[in-house]
Design a binder for these strands. Structure first.
Lengths: 194, 194
DNA sequence: GTCTATAACGAGATAGAC
DNA sequence: GTCTATCTCGTTATAGAC
């Protein structure tokens, strides 16, 4: 199930790729094994070979998404730059997801939270926790360095940002209009700038 | 299907009440006629008598929700008070929904947008349009009167607010924690205050 | 208006051959 | 690893009696 480097993606990876897109566009309750199998031109049984059930597939999806997101945040940190620049890069991560006509995976799953298998719920919350922790650190960094300005606890501002980004994606999608996201988020970032 | 005044709710209304709660907690793809029928202790066939199919039920749900929301906004306007007070009242509408452990109906449907029957899609967008139009008016009112302060177009700020409220609800629900919503939104409103 | 019964279909899942 | 065939169940929906 792990990918060797420099290789064409194996079946497990392709299953994850298609499933991920389907969850992000239709929701976890809005896609089926049959959808994935058809698109990959394999049988449903082959799917069950790689992922025993939908719950297991969902958890694998989350694990991979969380790892990628953590990597992306590390990448933003590695680029250097001040806090304001990091914040911009962070927003771009979301904006890119929306540009591919998708909702944030965890935002989608947050909507369906009550219907999710137990194993997935914990991971959804951890995604938000991690995002908020990263943002909190960047916000403090920016406030200390004087590149960001806000009142109150950085943790609260971090939560506000995560919520606002998720909501801006959520509302922009029915209009199929990324500019809706950009203008809403732009206003938000400006209010944090010195 | 219409309710006479001063009467116990008829079956159609009770169906809408239960369905509405189920959609707001589990999503449109996360509940079934069987769920509603069981809860009301009636048969699924009775449900089909009142609402031919799930699509029709969904549209009826939206129509009623939109009417109620418009009423609520009229109520806020009728109370008088300045723009800042109206904005607070507006946020309370959302906060009340979250307190009943629900997601905004249209926020939930926005997540599932791609899987919705055509008739419901238009109504979801109209809900956001109406919200934004109302907010835009209140924002302009507040800016003119000097009780609100913001830069740029009121329409953009209105969109930012709608998105942020929806997102704050979305993220707060997995934590079952209304205070998450309050603190995030509080920060937002303060940034608009003079 | 509400019921029972049932049709028609799709979902998730398994058995066993190759 | 992948297939075909099959199973079971849930979901939407209809027919026809009361």
């Amino acid at each position: 199930m792990e990918e060797p480097p420099e290789t064409n993606p194996g079946t497990a990876t392709r299953i994850l790729d298609v499933s991920e897109r389907l969850v992000q566009t239709r929701g976890f309750n809005g896609f089926s094994y049959a959808d994935v199998a058809t698109e990959l031109a394999i049988s449903k049984a082959a799917l069950h070979y790689h992922f025993a059930g939908k719950a297991e597939l969902g958890e694998a999806l989350m694990t991979r998404y969380a790892a990628r997101f953590a990597e992306a945040l590390d990448g933003v940190d590695a680029e250097g730059g001040d806090a304001r620049r990091k914040l911009d890069a962070y927003v771009t991560l979301y904006s890119d997801v929306l540009s591919s006509e998708r909702m944030c995976l965890c935002g989608m799953l947050a909507a369906e939270y009550r219907t999710l298998p137990e194993g997935m719920r914990t991971t959804v919350r951890r995604f938000f926790d991690d995002n908020e922790a990263w943002l909190e650190r960047v916000l403090e960094e920016g406030r200390t360095a004087g590149t960001l300005r806000f009142t109150g606890r950085a943790k609260d501002v971090a939560r506000m940002i995560v919520g606002s980004l998720e909501g801006a994606m959520l509302v922009a999608r029915p209009y199929d209009d990324v500019s809706r996201f950009r203008s809403a988020v732009g206003y938000l970032l400006d209010s944090l700038s010195v």
